[in-house]
Amino acid sequence: MAIRIEAPLTKEKIKDLKAGDSVLISGVVYTARDAAHKKMVEALERGEELPFDMRGQIIYYVGPCPAKPGHVIGSCGPTTSGRMDAYTPVLIEKGLAGMIGKGLRDRTVIESMIQHGAVYFGAIGGAGALIAGTVKSEEIIAYEELGPEAVRKLVVEDFPAVVIIDSQGNNLYEIGKRAYRKV
């Protein structure tokens, strides 16, 4: 049974979520991929403000397809999270509380998640059409020149995801694989 959660996330909710929990996320999430992450980290290095206050927020790693006329958004499944690893710890230090993506994360990200309290959710890679149906509004808020990689504010309703890595560092990719591995 899926747990319904609201975004942005509270400290208590982050602690409650455990690797393997199925969740339905409703509320605001922000999109960013490689190019936007690079720009955000460079902005911080220059002492500038980020496009949004990271505290409690969830970043969704996605570069959506263009919306057809009459649609909110095009297909919008997750991209591979590992490419954001180099930029992630500094955003977690700024208060980033959740990430939605797919695929493995490196040690530094997981340690930062444990230290500051953050959760990594997996969405179904390649289920872009299904996920598009959960997006209720879309607005570009920064880096428009990046096209599909611009930072967007999305309002989602019952966005399906699974807790992959919780704030204690438990990792479903390891637990799940161990349970079914026969080699």
């Binding site: 095009g74 297909s75 289920a127 059409a129 399906p160």
Partner: peptide, 19 residues
């Protein structure tokens, strides 16, 4: 869910995946 997604993409004429 992947099978539902493929069916949705076919019905709605939209990409199976955003990539």
């Amino acid at each position: 869910k992947l099978l539902i997604n493929a069916e949705l993409a076919r019905e709605k004429d939209m990409p199976i995946c955003q990539d």
